[in-house]
Amino acid sequence: MADPIAALRGVVVDWPGRAPLGPIDLSVARGEIVALVGASGAGKSTTLRLLAGLQTPSRGEVIRALGVGRTGFVFQSPTLMPWAEALTNVALPLELAGVARPQARSRAAQALGAVGLGDRPDARPSQLSGGMAMRAALARALITAPHLLLLDEPFAALDSVTRRRLIEDLHALWAAAEPRPAMVFVTHDVEEAVYLAQRVVVLAAATGRPVADLPTPGPLPRPARWRADPAYRQTVEAIADALEAAMRPETTT
């Protein structure tokens, strides 16, 4: 890949008392959407943390062509500060970067509006539904106009209707952003991965090494009824097969 926004080159992470993770080679191009799929414990979250610069590798090289604050991260749970209103939560990254409070808050209000929470700036996280809290977390991740957005199974705990809506909104936000952020989306749901991403990377069960790297068909954002399209269905089956192969122990060596 000519000009990756972030890449892992032969990265190994040693765990005390466990088999090491890697070596991982993974490149993320500017503006692309990549889904990482793999079994539980395949190192999906660790791979995201490596890309975020939150985890130092034991060996190998992490390349990050971004400045501080240009990485957004959405965790499995919304991870909002429970003592603060939605607006304060969303303004946090800007305020940590030293942006003046009034300016940070007015931009946070815009960001909340963009994710459909414009009418709930004063809500505490406990007053928001799971889907709304995740929208606030998304607004917080997007407020710094990130060049790289990392999402760690963000919609896994949501019901399927809310989840589909959030995926559509995520595509719309990605398409509207200038520049479009590269997104790396971790999931264990193959259908979600194929629908959401332009490229699906399958990680081996124990080592976390990418063992398959397949493009998905069709335009982004997805056309209506795309889930019924044969091309989509075929890719889902192909990647499900690759994932099953990756979970068999003999293929991981």
Binding site: A52, V68, L92, P93
Partner: peptide, 20 residues
Amino acid sequence: DLERLFDLYGATPLQRLWRL
């Protein structure tokens, strides 16, 4: 995860103490 978020945005020790 909130601690990680503060890492990600390069929070100072004082910001981390006061805001988290």
